[in-house]
């Protein structure tokens, strides 16, 4: 098992390296110039000093030299500065990551609870009315564009009813987490809606799978009450595969949903990525990409390990 883990984790390093090269050169090919981006053509700007700034930031160096400088700095633990705002990237991450994690984590919890519950309900009586209902609600959830859904619930709950704030994360008088919980409800719910379907389907299928196993029949024949069979025997045994699906979701904690962050003006990492890409702020794009890629690698690593743990045959492969 340990050998398997080590082997898997060693593969990730060259992978990150390749990704960093691809992203770096792809960004540099983009015609966007971060220096002229920051000055709108609507304002008359004297452009001579801009050239000096470009030189000063080393943006005129050959690409491979820029890449070399960048990677050396990263190895030393220096993430660099945003070209557009001048802020240290470590600081940007420290500001934006918690917001995204908070949002995604809540969405993950909501969608897991609802998704698993609906999956269980579906599995109790397959092809019943309740099965149909929950499955179709989940399909509906993945069929409506999330920004559309977001705009609609803002209209209903924030504007028409005035129950919840329209957007943003922290209000002026919000001190504790509970103060700003109202801000979290709409975006995390919107995010959760789209994630229901997979969890529901997965829970339902693995439950049905387990319920058809012999030991369930044995348990039933022993006269154990049906609900106990359902919870203690069936659900417990299908938990493993549900955990695998949850591990798949981990990268979302960092990536979040860019579109939902835009709709709700959530000051998270997705927001930072969008503005960095649109201004070709390459130090920020590089670091966020590497971070997301690592998250995906860690998640798929966890999935592999979990699966291997649950099914020893994989380890031997």
């Amino acid at each position: 098992m340990l050998k398997y883990i080590i082997r898997k984790s060693l593969v990730t390093i060259p992978m990150l390296f390749v990704i960093s090269i691809i992203v770096f050169f792809a960004i540099q090919l983009s015609p966007i110039d971060p220096i002229s981006y920051s000055a709108s053509p609507d304002v008359a700007v004297d452009s001579e000093n801009l050239e000096a700034l470009r030189e000063h930031l080393g943006l005129n160096d050959p690409l491979y030299i820029q890449y070399y400088h960048w990677i050396i700095a990263v190895f030393k633990g220096d993430f660099g500065y945003s070209i557009i705002t001048g802020q240290p990237i470590a600081k940007i991450l420290a500001l934006k990551l918690p917001a995204t994690i908070e949002l995604s984590l809540l969405a993950l919890v909501i969608s897991t609870i609802i998704g698993v519950a609906m999956g269980l309900v579906s599995a109790i009586k397959p092809n019943s009315m309740s099965d149909y209902f929950s499955r179709n609600v989940a399909v509906l959830g993945i069929s409506i564009p999330e920004f559309f859904f977001g705009i609609i619930i803002i209209q209903i709950f924030a504007i028409q009813l005035g129950w919840l704030p329209i957007s943003g994360r922290i209000g002026v008088n919000d001190v504790t987490f509970w103060d700003r919980l109202p801000n979290l409800i709409l975006p995390s719910f919107t995010l959760a809606i789209g994630m229901l379907a997979v969890l529901l389907r997965y829970t339902r299928n693995s439950m049905l799978d387990v319920l058809s196993k012999d030991y369930i029949k044995t348990a039933r024949s022993k006269g154990i009450p049906e609900w106990k069979v359902f919870i203690f025997h069936a659900f417990r045994n299908s938990l493993g595969s549900i955990l695998v699906i949850l591990a798949f979701r981990l990268p979302m904690l960092i990536g979040g949903s860019v579109i939902i962050e835009m709709v709700f003006m959530w000051p998270g990492i997705g927001n930072a990525i969008i503005s960095a890409v649109s201004s070709s702020d390459y130090p920020v794009i590089m670091i966020t990409t590497m971070m997301l890629a690592s998250a995906i690698l860690v998640a798929s690593f966890l999935v592999d390990v979990l699966s291997a743990f649950l099914d020893p045959r994989i380890r031997l492969e």
């Binding site: 966007i32 110039d33 981006y37 053509p41």
Partner: peptide, 21 residues
Amino acid sequence: QADPTTELYKVRDYDIALKGL
């Protein structure tokens, strides 16, 4: 696609561009 300043004065792949001042 790119930043307007670069597009307007460097890339210059247009005949007519809407601008504000």
